[in-house]
């Protein structure tokens, strides 16, 4: 599969999928007007990956600093997909949040509650 690299815009996050190293990154802010339109092809790509690469272990890294409620709904779908993948392979999820950002911390905790088949790590960072 061809790697994917989408640069961040004012309202959409940076997205990098490196299929060779099984590394997936989401970073920045997400509040597009039409979240479904933006994320549909991205979710499809992950779905395709999950069906093709049945045995590789994979890492999903989230460094999101803000997302709106319709992006949250998409993220929930994404985590469902990732969790399903974890049923037959090793999956790591890293959720990075600024130590003072209790909203992103809480979202990380909420999403991790529903993950049963992957290793979900909450990682805080500071300005320096």
């Amino acid at each position: 599969m061809d790697n994917l690299e989408i640069s961040a815009t004012e309202t959409t996050p940076e997205i990098k999928f490196d299929f060779d190293s099984h590394y997936f990154l989401f970073g920045g802010e997400s509040y597009p007007e039409h979240s479904d339109e933006f994320y549909r092809p991205i979710l499809e790509l992950i779905q395709k990956y999950s069906q093709n690469e049945l045995e590789s272990s994979a890492t999903f890294v989230f460094r999101l600093t803000y997302f709106n409620s319709s992006s949250a709904r998409v993220l929930m779908k994404l985590f469902e997909l990732i969790d399903e993948m974890g049923e037959n392979r090793e999956i790591k999820i890293e959720w990075h949040y600024h130590e003072e950002d209790d909203t992103m911390e809480e979202f990380g905790e909420d999403f991790s509650d529903d993950i049963e088949n992957a290793n979900f790590k909450l990682i805080s960072y500071s300005d320096d």
Partner: peptide
């Protein structure tokens, strides 16, 4: 303003305005 508070103001603002839109 503390970062956590700024984020909350921004979040409420975005949801409120997207509701108007």
């Amino acid at each position: 303003t503390e970062l956590g508070k700024t984020k909350k103001v921004f979040s409420i603002f975005v949801e409120g305005v997207q509701n108007v839109i």
